[in-house]
Every structure is written in C-alpha cells, then in structure tokens.
Write a protein that binds this DNA or RNA. Structure first.
Length: 441
RNA sequence: CGGAGCGUGGCGCAGUCUGGUAGCGCACUUGUCUGGGGGACAAGGGGUCGGUGGUUCGAAUCCACUCGCUCCGACCA
C-alpha cells in the first residue's frame, strides 16, 4: 500500500479524551475513531490488525476441530426468558423493540441462541461432541465504558460453545480450549497466564481467565515467576490426545487475580512471586447442564434414553486484544507490533521523493515485496524525513527500510527493527534478498 | 449508579471570573527556499463557541434546562 493512497489519519498530539496509552496510540496512529461512548469505527489500519488477530484466532480454533459459523447480533427476548437471563442480565443488555412491538436485544453473548440451535438440530449421541464458534460483534451496555477498545460497549468477540455427552468428554473439550488459548495468544506475541477464576453470572464450576501482564491492566494479579517463561504447546500438539498433563503443568504454578489472592495463604513469596497488573483477554468456562437443561438440549443415547448435554463456553476478546497487545508492546515513540498481527510487516521510507534514484530503488523494493505477497507500506509522501520516521515509529511496523540519497551514494539502504531499534545497512540486492526471506518465513 | 470535571476550526488549547461580536500552536491550501528523526519565510481557507430557552442595546462569557464526552469508585469479554 502506498501511503499517498492510504486513509491513515495520524495525530501528532494526544487527544484529550484518551487517558490510557493503547487508546492514545490507537487514535494517534489512525486505527480507530470514536463514534459514541465505548463505540468505535475501525479505520483501515485498525481494521487490518483486527482481521489479522481474527485470522489467528480462527486458525487455532479450526485446529482443535471447532467449526465456525455466524449467529446474528440481534436476538429475540423469548430465548433469554427461557434461560432466565432476560431479567438477570439487567441494564447491561441493550433491549430493542421492533415495529411490531416484539422485544429484541443486541446480543451480549450467545449461550441461549446456540443451545437453542443445537437443541433443535442435534438429536443423537452419534452427532456429538460438537464445538461451534463465531466471531461476532457483541454489545454490553457498560455503566462506564473506558480505556478505548479495552472496555468498549460494542466489541468483537470470538465465542464458542462445546456440547458433550458426559462430564469426562466435556472436560476434554475444556482442555482443548485451554491449550488452544495458550497457542492463540502465543502466536500474537503474548504470554497469557491462565488463572483460576470465579464463574460469575455464567455459572458452572470450572473456569480460567487468560491474563496478560501490562502496567495499565485493569486488575491486580499475582503469579509464580516460572509462568512467565513457560512455553505454549507447539503446532504439533495432538488435540485428541490426553491434554491433562499440559493443563496440570500450567495450573501447578500459583496464579490468582486479586479477588482470589490471599497474602497469608499464598504458597510462594519473595522473588518467585510476581505482582503485576493484568488484562483479561480470554475466559473459558465449563458449566455442565445449566443452559442445556433450560433450553431442552438433549439427545437420545445408545440405550434409548434422553441425555442432557454437557456444555462449556469460551471467549476471546478480539477487539480488546488490540488494546492489550499495545499495552504490552509500545514505547515512547509509539506502537511496537508483533509481526504476526502488524497491519503491515514492512514500512518503506523514501527519504527524498522526487530524487530519481531514491524513487527508482523504492519502486523496485516495493514491487518486489508486492510480488512476493508481503504486506508493505510504502511512504511515498513528499514530506521531510523526520516526520516520516516519527510516523513510522508511531504506527509501529516491525521493520523499516529507509532509502535516501546519502546511503544510495554508497549503494546501501538502512534496515531498522522497530522492537529494539537495531539498525543495519544492506546493499540494494541484499535488501531484495532480505525481503524474499521475509516472504519465505 | 454515587462523586468530580470538560464541551471554542481536523487535533491541542487561550478567552468565560470582570458581557462589546473569536484568538494561538499544530494540521490543511498555494508559492519559494530546503531536505536522514515532526524545517524556514510569505500568502491563504476553515469555527452560528454542544443544543434549546431566557436576561440584556449587546452573550463563547450571566441564568435555566438539556445533550454529549472524560476521570475516580462499585460492576464486567
């Protein structure tokens, strides 16, 4: 993408309403604009990241055998009356009336709807287990939206729901998602720490929050230092195998949010105990038959008897992850995108637009990257160098290639890694080769 | 939902107390000089001061109501 063509309104100054660093940087780097309290428009750069994160989530879900579908944002109140949550959910639920005075709502989550679908369409034990997910906008009318996309009212969430015949099988479904989440967050460059959690209004008796550490996190968390170095399972993990050893490994270390932490009974102390702030990016629940019973989700077993389904639900805050990643990865100059989610992987800076040689080399490098299918942003604006460097740092692309007359005199261009600022010089041919390596990686 | 604060060109702000018809920086347009970490000079464009009603000869400024947004606390992917 050429910068002159791109809609990327960056800001030099911090908007007054943004207090938290990720919110400031998302506004300044032209990713989002606010349209109402807790409701945002996603501009091209932000939307690209949102898509990349969604895609990683999707690939990791698919790897477990979960199947993607798409349920509507608007639901009927009737379903929610069945589960009893129409009244329980309170004012957080945005309620709507259609032209026929039918009561509708903007879905804050989908247990009722998916359970209703499964109850209607699955009738035999032979059709289980099933794990169904979608990535869809949710709306929760938060009392106090804040922190940009980290606590918006409208947010993009991946939610899925597992349906099993018995507790043991349901437990395996839960374990699959546990492992899947470790992998999903690791692919985004995040160390997410699973912490035993209260099950809250969703109910049930087995639940973990996945929390990443960041100074501006919403809640205080405590965990064993060893967790920070644990490696997520590799892509070769076999999801149908017994995953309990992996779960046991991760849950053997102490990890607790402040409401569960008790300084007196905490088994670790001193250097081994990390006290930090955390952002919840995922949450998994096993809740048995809570919804299947209410919604009548049963199948016929091999013995002819009706079996009420065992369920779990699993959520990842996709739009929240953008804020969370920025909170965990930025510096004074701007965002530092992990490669896997960066809106573009390479930023190409033409330091002197109009100079024949600079233009020619930039066009050659840009063309090469495009040919190889690499996401590259070419800053071809006729601006001064300083502004372009500053803008590129702000946007936070992992790699910057600077092409200017000074270097070209010696036949070289400069390569900079955003994460640590490390620079190196490359000949033009080496730069092309380097780009080709990125494509192969 | 309790407490606090803020709405003035795209962004950041001054002006409000003490009423006299809107200003600064950045951004934007045009030109010249420049050109490796947000440059200089010159000339421009853009705002019914959140809205409604009131007081007044006159309201960004005073009064009332209202809408929106932000922050702190209690609640949450």
């Amino acid at each position: 993408m050429r910068r002159t063509q791109l809609f990327l309104p960056t800001l030099k100054e911090n908007p007054a309403e943004a207090q938290i660093v990720s919110h400031r940087l998302m506004l300044r780097s032209g990713m989002i604009r606010q349209s109402a309290a807790g409701i945002y428009s996603w501009l091209p750069a932000g939307h690209r990241v949102l898509r990349k994160i969604s895609q990683i989530v999707r690939e990791e879900q698919d790897a477990t055998g979960a199947q993607e579908m798409l349920m509507p944002t608007i639901q009927s109140a009737e379903l929610w009356r069945k589960s009893g949550r129409y009244d329980d959910y309170g004012k957080e639920m945005l309620r709507i009336t259609d032209r026929h005075d039918r009561e509708m709502l903007f879905g804050p989550t989908n247990e009722e709807l998916i359970t209703d679908i499964v109850a209607n369409e699955i009738n035999s034990y032979r059709d289980l287990p099933k794990n169904l997910y979608h990535i869809q906008w949710k709306f929760r009318d938060e009392v106090r939206p804040r922190f940009g996309v980290m606590r918006g009212r409208e947010f993009l969430m991946k939610d899925n729901y597992s349906f099993d015949l018995d507790h043991e099988s349901a437990r395996h479904s839960y374990n699959k998602m546990f492992v899947c989440y470790l992998r999903t967050f690791a692919r985004m460059g995040l160390q997410a720490i699973p912490m035993a959690a209260d099950t809250g209004p969703i109910g049930g008796d087995l639940s973990h929050e996945f929390i990443i550490l960041a100074e501006t996190g919403e809640s205080e968390v405590f965990c064993d230092k060893a967790l920070l170095d644990l490696e997520a399972p590799g892509a070769d993990i076999e999801f149908e195998s017994d995953l309990q050893p992996v779960i046991d490994q991760w849950t053997s270390y102490y990890a607790a949010t402040d409401e569960k932490h008790d300084a007196d009974s905490c088994p670790i102390s001193g250097e081994q105990l990390v006290q930090a702030r955390g952002i919840e990016v995922g949450h998994i629940f096993y809740f048995g038959t809570k919804y299947s019973e209410a919604m009548g989700a049963q199948v016929q077993g091999s013995d002819g008897k009706q079996i009420t389904l065992e369920m779990g639900s699993y959520g990842i805050g996709v739009s929240r992850l953008l804020g969370a990643i920025i909170e965990a990865s930025h510096d004074d100059a701007g965002i530092i995108w992990p490669e896997a989610v960066a809106p573009w992987n390479i930023g190409l800076i033409n330091l002197k637009v109009g100079d024949g040689q600079c233009d020619a080399v930039c066009e050659a490098l840009y063309g090469e990257a495009r040919r190889l299918g690499i996401d590259i942003l070419y800053d071809d604006r006729d601006e001064r160098a300083g502004g372009k460097f500053a803008d590129m740092d702000l946007i936070g692309l992992p790699w910057q290639i600077a092409v200017g007359p000074r270097g070209l005199k010696d036949g070289i261009v400069e390569l900079k890694r955003r994460s640590d600022g490390e620079r190196s010089t490359l000949s033009i041919d080496d730069a092309k080769a380097w780009i080709a390596e990125r494509a192969a990686a």
